[in-house]
Amino acid sequence: MHPQPPDPFEVPTIDISPYVTAGPDSERARVARQVDDACRRVGFIQIVGHGIPGEVVGGLTGAMDDFFGLPLDDKKSYRVEGANRGYSPPKSESLSLSLGVESATRMNDFFEAFNVGVEARSFPELDLSESDYGINLWPGVEGFEPRVQRYFGEASRVARTLTRIFADALGQNPDFFDTLTDHSIDVLRMNNYALPEGTVTLDGDLTGMGEHTDFGIVTVLWADNVAGLQVLGGDGVWHDVAPREGALLVNLGDLTARLTNDRWRSTLHRVKPPIVDGTIARRRSAALFHDGNVDAVVATLPGFVDAGEDAYEPITIRDHIKAKLAGSRHGKANTAAVREAARVLAAAGNTVVP
């Protein structure tokens, strides 16, 4: 009897509008079942029915174009040392080190980025430190802040809608994630993948953004419909993924994998931009990271550890994110990411184009 071939890789498309518009219970239950299946098999979802108006997305992309179009020296004036805020120049980060994996292109991720996020002072009733959050540094670009803030608010709403779906899909109380996210470190990272026109000459394999898993609970990603994003499938092969028209890409972070003891996947992904005649096609993306409360402890949920399995050790979100950022920003390999690193090293290294 011949073994069955693995299921073809596909990122499912799910309409989450029953949760956005308070649809009937039966429709919400259907969505929760679809999300559970996608999170078990893939860890990535294309979501439609999210309710973010097109003009809000257009405002975001216009703000990104205005900022990234500035001269490099001007952009560098918005660097914020020691905080996950402000500008990151090209080749200043290495995402693979957030997993403890030494990439051939260490500190060679050529994307540039600008980060904004929630600040500790947003929660005056709590004794929080800005060292865990960070103060936003807004560039002096006309209309940048209001355009980005409007999208940030919408994407944060979508992230919280998703955690409400997650609670249902995992059989938890509807407010389960509230205790983990009511003062969440939410960060919006706007990315620009581009190099000056001309021949690309980099040591090692060209990397837009190295292989990594996301740090927190869930990520909501807007991206250009340009090739580049690759997801590591269960077959050990890197697959190209592009957003559908009007859709957002959603993927799980490490903390959700910890909650479910990897029942739900925190899927490895990377960006490998296309090179045509020695030049790179420009690609933009904006990722809203819904990372959770800095002081919350994440432990595997009861009922998600089968006989003979080891559960993840409980960890505070502060310590988890600190170790991941020490890798990506400061070149210190994250020795705690044992399971994720093993998946990178076992990957086949070739890519399948859908």
Rank of each mutant, 00 (worst) to 15 (best):
T219L: 04
S88D: 14
F123G: 00
D235H: 05
L255W: 01
S103W: 01
E55A: 11
Y193N: 07
P5I: 09
S131A: 15
S328G: 10
F144C: 04
L162P: 01
N84V: 14
L202F: 11
D254I: 04
G198E: 06
I280T: 06
L188P: 00
V200L: 08
N261K: 06
Q46V: 01
T199V: 15
V116D: 04
T13M: 14
F152Q: 09
V226M: 12
Y312L: 04
F289W: 09
H330P: 03
G143L: 11
D66P: 08
V101M: 06
A337Y: 00
V31K: 01
G62A: 12
L202E: 12
R41T: 15
R79F: 12
G82A: 02
T179Q: 15
N108R: 15
A333H: 08
Y19D: 12
G140I: 08
I217F: 13
V220N: 04
T351E: 05
R329F: 14
A247K: 04
V35A: 03
L180V: 01
L195M: 12
L301S: 02
Q172I: 05
F144D: 05
L288T: 02
R164W: 05
S131Y: 08
W238K: 11
P8H: 07
I45Y: 01
R160C: 07
V31G: 06
A113D: 10
G143F: 05
N108T: 13
T316F: 02
Y312W: 07
P53T: 07
Y19E: 12
W138F: 08
T161K: 09
I52Y: 02
P274H: 12
H212K: 11
V20G: 05
G62Y: 03
D306C: 03
G308P: 04
D319E: 15
Q46M: 04
A281D: 13
F123N: 00
M1P: 11
A286V: 03
I217Y: 01
G292L: 01
R263C: 07
R283Q: 06
D168C: 11
G86H: 07
A307G: 13
G210M: 07
R343D: 13
V271L: 06
D295S: 07
A223P: 03
R121T: 14
L252W: 00
D205A: 15
P89A: 15
G43Q: 06
V57R: 15
G234K: 08
E313T: 10
V237W: 03
G234Q: 10
S156D: 13
L202Q: 14
T316S: 14
G171Q: 04
P53I: 07
L126D: 08
T207L: 09
D25V: 11
A281I: 11
F177L: 08
K322A: 13
D15C: 03
L170D: 01
D66G: 09
G43N: 04
R318T: 05
Q46T: 02
E81Q: 12
G349D: 02
V276T: 13
D295A: 10
A167L: 04
R28E: 12
F152M: 10
G51T: 06
G292F: 00
P314D: 07
G234A: 12
P12V: 05
G246I: 05
R157S: 03
R270Q: 12
L95Q: 15
G208E: 06
D66I: 04
S184T: 11
E154Q: 14
I16D: 07
